[in-house]
Design a binder for these strands. Structure first.
Length: 787
DNA sequence: GAGCACTGC
């Protein structure tokens, strides 16, 4: 019986012949995995091999370091659950692993899978998907070490700009979700993987949410693909229900206890009117009266953090001056994403030493949400949590998203508190009342997919072959209107035909790792003989330099870190302004981006060039890498890279190409001096950072920013004729409401037709467009009043 | 004459 069962095991055909049956000479001496049958391996078998002297994957003796690492691995809670894991993994196609930080799931589970799946014997790979690059890199490095193999040979990682794998030998690959999505575009069933592990799904990042939907679909078609979903302890019921492929069985769950210490939570008695003041006061209170241990204070943004650091330092200085020896010395370290990696490193510095027998020194890290998930600081014993963070908020009245300081969720508060218990028992001071926590804070953050512009997502799903997006099985389905809005944009860009099918152009656009508008821009650019320049501008717009989510809908945009570094202080500011003036091109901000990059590239030899010109070296380096990557995709599709030698003509052509990519981001200057966006009639002004010396009648813009008032930023002049020539049906007058903009377009049409006939007379239907929106008129009145 | 939570390809 047993042997016939073995012969029917589909995986055995992949094995070398000697593994199919018993042998009299003892082959296990040479192959520690002798007798292992894929997906039937038990915990005790794996443990035995781990204890031996011969590495089963390299067939080399283990190094001395291996055993030491193995001993520390044995302390991890996950390690003790190995038998249970193997049992569930072997018997199920999909399983869920739940465990708090410190349980060891991200490092150990993939290794267990490698032992049961034996991907290296069947030319398959195990993937472990992370939400962030840094996590993928550092986990791969750690696990390669634990398995005593070379990083990039048997265990590797795959992130944007860096593929640390050997396609012939790597069988365990850590990667970002974005990379797996990109692979799925050309391999919709992800054939090369035997098991895919999705880590940190509780974070509900856009990529993991989409991957969950895709993988659930693949699992129905590919019964040999195993899926492991890993999450911190929250909301697991939702995932268990979601991954039930058959209604009669529950998805199996492995629960692993965490290895964190208890954290005592304190609330304020009354709500705090000023959280910043309360945060500083609480930090000082801890410093004065609590036992040694570092403090982590959560605030919302760069300015607030720098401000708080200054104030805390000052208070400690005053306290020491007034009563020497009353408090110990303090270092206050700011932490947010736009800091250079070197500056971010200083959070790992030791706290300052006590002054001759005085109270001990303390380190205070003042951080954004980056310290909630992305960066872990050891040694934190006290957490100060004001209960707020900056979040993208959708304002349906004016159809714009902006960043607003808002209340965090309970899950987020729990995560923050947990940061105090990594070293030893800790304390968390919440600057809100217990009542507020229970009654007013949301259970979880809204998943990113419900708050995002979906044009890129929809294009990706179409490329993977998912046609019916409205019925696609999302964990949390986005509103159908958002999907339709994304489809409409893709239709305008000709990526999708009128029936919602992906066009060949759309398939090509999906290959570019940029937003659809930018992909379109790159593809059309050779026609305008300026693809080298558009390539540079696209790279500059696609990085963190300027945000370009504005997309579809013009419903977006918040803020973005600027390419220009603006240091505090009046004299510094003058220097920055002068530097900018020096590089600015008055034909348009897009051309300024081109000029900045070209000058950067010419001065690569000068390490101080960026700094001397008040530019972010980090951002420029990123643009350089993006440019290289995009150039590679263009070459792959034989998209010509060309330029015109006549600069004036070149600049004109660049702006014409921009119209093709950003049809929906055009604005017209009205008689009152304000600009009106064509898409949805928002009254806007040119942002003060804009370098245009005149106020042209027509402009193309990259961002819609809502700050003290609605602004458009990164703006270039365009001509009405271009809109008609390159905009096609998008600028069909029938769809425009009556007004100055329509009349101006009408004049351009007439000029083109060489007639005075009204363009809209040529069509039978009267104008039906009424989607001016309730806010259009209101906005306009406000703007008029201001004038 | 203004202002930047966090990720990812």
């Amino acid at each position: 019986m047993a042997s016939s069962k073995l012969q029917n095991n589909p995986y055995l055909s992949h094995l070398p012949p000697h593994q199919k049956g018993a042998s009299r000479s003892n082959p296990s001496a040479k192959d520690p995995l002798y007798g292992f049958i894929p997906r039937r391996v038990k915990g005790n078998q794996a443990r035995k091999v781990m204890e031996r002297d011969l590495n089963p994957f390299t067939k080399q003796p283990y190094s001395g370091r291996y055993k030491a690492l193995l001993n520390s691995r044995k302390e991890l809670p996950v390690f003790g659950r190995m038998d249970e894991f193997f049992k569930i993994f072997n018997e199920n196609q999909i399983m869920i692993v739940v465990g708090e930080t410190g349980a060891g799931k991200s490092t150990q589970i993939p290794q267990f899978v490698a032992f049961s799946d034996l991907p290296h014997t069947r030319r398959k790979m195990v993937a472990c998907v992370q939400p962030r690059r840094l996590a993928a890199m550092s986990l791969a490095t750690r696990v390669a070490d634990e398995m005593d193999v070379h990083l990039g040979e048997h265990v590797g990682y795959s992130i944007r700009f860096e593929e640390m794998i050997d396609p012939d030998t790597t069988f365990l690959k850590y990667m970002t979700g974005g990379m797996l999505l990109r692979e799925a575009q050309n391999d919709p069933t992800l054939e090369r993987y035997s098991t895919i592990i999705l880590d940190e799904v509780h974070e509900r990042s856009l990529d993991t949410d989409i991957l969950m939907g895709i993988l659930k679909g693949i699992a129905k078609k590919r019964k040999d693909l195993k899926i492991i979903v890993m999450s911190a302890t929250m909301n697991v019921t939702k995932f268990r229900k979601y991954f039930n492929l058959r209604s009669d069985e529950q998805v199996s769950l492995l629960k692993v206890p965490g290895r964190t210490h208890p954290v005592e939570v304190f609330y304020t008695q009354e709500p705090e009117p000023d959280y910043l003041e309360a945060a500083i006061r609480t930090t000082m209170m801890i410093h004065r009266s609590e036992a040694p241990g570092d403090i982590l204070l959560f605030l919302t943004g760069e300015q607030e953090i720098e401000d708080a650091c200054r104030k805390i330092k000052l208070e400690v200085k005053d306290a020491i001056k007034q009563h020497p020896g009353s408090v110990g010395p303090i270092v206050c370290i700011p932490l947010y994403s736009s800091l250079s990696p070197q500056k971010q490193q200083s959070i790992f510095d030791s706290p300052p030493v006590a002054i001759k027998g005085g109270p001990s020194g303390r380190k205070v890290v003042v951080a954004t949400n980056i310290a909630e998930t992305s960066i872990t600081i050891d040694g934190i014993v006290y957490v100060v949590d004001p209960g707020v963070s900056k979040q993208k908020v959708y304002n349906p009245q004016i159809r714009v998203e902006s960043l607003v300081v808002s209340s965090i969720s309970k899950a987020s508060a729990q995560q923050r508190a947990g940061r105090a218990g990594r070293l030893r028992p800790g304390k968390c001071f919440r600057l809100y009342t217990e009542r507020e926590f229970h009654r007013e804070m949301e259970e979880y953050d809204h998943p990113e997919i419900l708050r995002s512009n979906l044009s890129t997502t929809v294009l990706t799903l179409l490329k993977i072959g998912i046609k019916d997006l409205v019925t696609f099985d999302f964990v949390d389905p986005p509103a159908p209107e958002l999907l339709l809005r994304a489809l409409k944009l893709l239709n305008y860009l000709a990526a999708v035909d009128d029936d919602g099918n992906l066009t060949p152009l759309g398939a090509m656009m999906a290959e570019f790792p940029v937003e659809p508008q930018l992909a379109k821009l790159l593809i059309v650019s050779p026609k305008f003989r300026c693809s080298n320049e558009i390539l540079t501008i696209t790279a500059m717009m696609s990085g963190r330099l300027t945000s370009n989510d504005s997309a579809t809908t013009s419903l977006l945009i918040s803020s973005a870190p600027n390419i220009w570094i603006c240091p505090p202080g009046a004299r510094q500011r003058q220097g920055a302004d002068a530097a900018k003036k020096h590089l600015a091109v008055h034909d348009g901000d897009h051309l300024t981006l081109l000029e900045v990059y070209n000058q950067y590239y010419l001065n690569l030899h000068d390490k101080n060039w960026a700094w001397n010109n008040y530019l972010s070296a980090q951002s420029l380096k990123e643009a350089e890498m993006i440019r290289k990557q995009l150039k590679g995709v263009m070459e792959r599709f034989y998209i010509e890279l060309n330029s015109l030698s006549d600069e004036k003509k070149l600049f004109t052509n660049v702006r014409q190409a921009l119209v093709c990519g950003f049809l929906m981001q055009i604005a017209h200057k009205e008689k009152d001096g304000n600009y009106l966006t064509l898409k949805d009639n928002q009254v806007v002004a040119l942002h003060p950072s804009c370098d245009l010396i005149t106020q042209p009648e027509w402009v193309v813009y990259n961002e819609f920013v809502l700050s003290s008032r609605p602004y458009i930023r990164t703006v270039s002049e365009v001509k009405a004729e271009w809109l008609i020539e390159f905009g096609g049906k998008y600028f069909d007058l029938v769809s425009f409401p009556d007004g100055e903009t329509k009349s101006a377009l009408q004049r351009a049409w007439n000029k083109r037709m060489g007639t005075t006939e009204s363009a809209s007379d040529r069509t039978s239907k009267p104008s039906k467009r009424k989607d001016k929106g309730p806010s259009g008129g209101i906005q306009k009145k406000k703007a008029n009043r201001r004038r």
